[in-house]
Lab assay of single mutants.
Amino acid sequence: NKASVVANQLIPINTALTLIMMKAEVVTPMGIPAEEIPKLVGMQVNRAVPLGTTLMPDMVKNYE
Rank of each mutant, 00 (worst) to 15 (best):
A48S: 07
V41R: 10
Q44V: 14
P57I: 14
A48I: 07
T18Q: 07
L51S: 07
N8K: 11
I37H: 03
M59F: 14
K2A: 15
V5E: 00
A16G: 04
T53Y: 05
K2C: 15
N8E: 09
S4N: 02
G52I: 01
E25Q: 07
L55C: 02
A34Y: 14
I20T: 13
V27M: 07
E35C: 14
R47N: 15
T28L: 03
P33F: 10
S4A: 10
E36H: 03
V26N: 04
P38D: 04
P29V: 09
M59E: 14
A48T: 11
K39N: 06
M30T: 13
N8C: 15
M56S: 08
N62S: 14
G42N: 09
N1H: 08
E25R: 06
V27H: 03
P57H: 12
N62H: 14
P12V: 10
P12M: 08
Q44H: 11
A34C: 15
E64T: 12
I32Q: 01
K39M: 04
T53V: 15
P12N: 09
S4I: 02
Q9S: 12
K2D: 15
M56Q: 07
Q44C: 11
T15L: 04
N46R: 09
A3T: 09
L10I: 13
P33Q: 05
M59Y: 10
I37S: 13
A24F: 15
A24M: 10
K61P: 10
N46I: 09
R47E: 13
V26P: 07
K61S: 13
P29D: 14
V45E: 01
T15A: 07
M56F: 09
A48V: 11
V5D: 00
P33S: 11
M21Y: 11
T54N: 02
D58G: 09
T15K: 04
L17D: 01
T53G: 12
M30F: 07
S4F: 03
D58L: 03
N14L: 10
N8G: 09
A7D: 00
P38R: 05
T15Y: 04
S4L: 01
V6L: 13
I37F: 05
P50M: 11
T54I: 04
T53I: 08
G31R: 02
V49L: 12
A16I: 03
K23S: 11
M22P: 00
T18P: 01
I37R: 09
K2V: 15
M22E: 01
P50S: 10
N46H: 11
P33T: 09
V49G: 01
V45A: 06
A48C: 14
A3H: 06
P57A: 10
L19C: 15
L10G: 12
T53W: 13
L10V: 14
N62K: 12
K39A: 05
L55Q: 01
L55N: 00
V60T: 02
K23T: 12
E36Q: 11
G31F: 02
N14Y: 04
V5K: 00
A24Y: 12
N46G: 12
V5C: 07
I20L: 12
P57N: 04
P50F: 12
P12G: 06
Q44T: 13
I13D: 11
V26Q: 07
I13Q: 11
L19W: 05
I32G: 00
A3P: 12
V5Q: 01
T53E: 09
N8M: 15
T54K: 03
V27G: 06
Q44I: 05
T54E: 02
V41N: 03
T28D: 15
N46P: 04
V26C: 15
L10H: 14
K39I: 07
P57M: 14
K39H: 12
L40F: 02
R47M: 05
P50N: 12
L19P: 11
T15I: 06
I13C: 14
E36R: 12
P29L: 15
V49C: 06
V49W: 02
V45K: 00
P29C: 14
A48M: 14
I13W: 05
E35M: 04
R47A: 12
E25Y: 03
E64F: 03
L17S: 00
A7E: 01
A24R: 03
P12A: 06
G31E: 02
M43R: 11
M43G: 09
M43W: 10
M21S: 09
Y63N: 03
A34K: 04
T54C: 13
T28R: 02
T53M: 14
V27K: 06
V49M: 05
M22H: 00
I13F: 07
I32K: 00
T18E: 12
V45N: 05
P38F: 08
V26G: 03
V6Q: 13
S4T: 11
N62A: 13
N62V: 04
K2P: 15
L51M: 12
Q44G: 03
M30Y: 04
V26F: 07
A34R: 03
I37W: 02
E35A: 03
I11T: 02
P29E: 13
A34P: 09
M59Q: 08
V5R: 00
S4Y: 07
K2Q: 15
L17R: 00
A24L: 04
K23M: 13
V5W: 01
M30C: 15
L17G: 00
G42I: 01
T15F: 06
G42W: 06
V49F: 02
A16C: 15
P12H: 09
E35S: 08
M22Y: 01
E36W: 12
N46Y: 05
S4V: 03
P33A: 10
Y63Q: 03
P50Q: 14
E25F: 05
P33V: 13
V60I: 14
E25H: 11
Y63V: 02
L10S: 07
A3G: 06
I37L: 06
A24H: 13
E35H: 04
D58N: 10
M21N: 12
L51W: 11
T54W: 02
V49R: 06
V26I: 03
L55K: 01
V41Y: 11
M59S: 11
P33H: 09
E36P: 00
P12Q: 11
M43N: 12
V45F: 02
E64W: 02
K61C: 14
I13N: 13
A16Y: 07
A3D: 15
K39D: 04
T18K: 12
I32R: 00
V60H: 00
P12R: 05
D58I: 09
E25V: 12
M43I: 06
N62D: 05
E36A: 08
T15P: 01
E36L: 07
I20C: 15
Q9N: 03
G52C: 12
M21I: 08
I11W: 01
N14V: 12
G42V: 01
V5L: 03
L19A: 12
M30V: 12
V5N: 01
A48L: 12
M22A: 02
M22Q: 02
L10C: 14
I32H: 01
G31K: 01
P33D: 07
L19G: 08
A24I: 08
